[in-house]
């Protein structure tokens, strides 16, 4: 009596399945969030209602619980959810489906033999939302909204490893605003901030979703171009140079022109780590500056 009340009122989804994956129990939480009542689903095969669960990974975990009597954990990180359900309240905008952390365990009969298994479903959407915000805060430059240097160091490392694993191309652009100090000195820091924001906007509009724009330092930016060989990287760099110099910036009715210089570096067999690739891009940028600014250069041309 007490246990059945807990079963029905607990703020966790609880499901009992037999070895044939027939639903034996389905608590009120499950009914509420799945919009499938206990009467509807009890006695039926789980996969009739949730065909997406009928896959090797889920079945393997069921067999393992039934055989070894241990527990299986379906982490939100890997699965996001097992049962597609709508997220509650304000989180509906953030997630398409409720984020779940699920556990599966054995249920034994009086002889200690495993006869059924249970699944518990916990709504972790709120925690995931906080986690996302924290990660975001740690990776994003507050002024411009593009990635920060902290993010770049780990991401570039990952991209380099990926390229080596799959033999893909990778290029890096080092971008510096020409004579940025003059803008600050002439029009004030507010205007300088405005230019930084506008420039990142124009660049973001020109690059692909798979590329990463990073604010590397004060007026220095960096762009990771995934799966891009040197030739294409040069074309992108040239487009970025043009999109900045082609149209003047207007701040509080003052119009002025700004240009950027870009250094291009691509991954090859000789430079395999973050440092050497960055050094190459830096050298290229220095050369672009030497060539008279508002230019694109790499270390060889």
């Amino acid at each position: 009596m007490i246990f059945s009340q807990i079963f029905e009122t607990i703020n966790t989804g609880l499901v009992v399945l037999d070895k044939e994956m027939t639903v034996r129990h389905w608590n009120r939480w499950m009914a509420l969030h799945s919009e499938i009542s206990s009467d509807e689903i009890t006695g039926k095969n789980l996969f009739e209602f949730f065909p997406e669960l009928d896959r090797p990974h889920f079945l393997r975990n069921c067999r393992s619980v039934l055989t070894f009597g241990h527990f299986c954990f379906f982490s939100q990180k890997l699965h996001q959810y097992l049962f597609p359900m709508l997220p509650a309240g304000s989180l509906a905008e953030e997630f398409q489906f409720m984020q779940q952390s699920c556990t599966m365990g054995p249920l034994r009969n009086d002889h200690g033999e495993i006869e059924n298994l249970y699944l518990s479903v916990q709504d972790v959407s709120e925690v995931v939302s906080y986690q996302k915000k924290l990660v975001h805060m740690n990776q994003i430059d507050h002024l411009t909204g593009v990635y920060n240097r902290n993010f770049m160091e780990t991401q570039l490392q990952k991209e380099i490893e990926r390229c080596q694993r799959f033999k893909h191309d990778l290029s890096l652009l080092m971008i510096d605003i020409d004579l940025f100090k003059n803008i600050n000195d002439t029009y004030g820091h507010q205007c300088g901030d405005f230019v930084l924001k506008k420039i990142t906007q124009r660049i973001t509009d020109k690059i692909r979703k798979t590329d990463f724009l990073i604010r590397y330092g004060g007026d220095e930016f960096c762009c990771i171009l995934t799966e891009t060989p040197t030739n294409s990287a040069f074309k992108v760099a040239e487009q970025l140079r043009q999109v900045i110099c082609s149209e003047p910036f207007v701040f509080k009715e003052t119009s002025f022109e700004t240009t950027i210089s870009l250094g291009v570096a691509s991954l090859n067999e000789n430079d395999v780590d973050v440092e050497s690739l960055l050094r190459k891009a830096d050298t290229a940028l220095y050369k672009a500056k030497q060539n008279g600014r508002n230019t694109v250069a790499n270390t060889t041309r």
Binding site: S64, T67, F68, H70, F71, C72
Partner: peptide, 12 residues
């Protein structure tokens, strides 16, 4: 996940 299965199998 694999760890969970292997540990569960051995300890079980």
């Amino acid at each position: 996940e694999v760890g969970n299965i292997l540990i569960g199998a051995c300890i079980g």
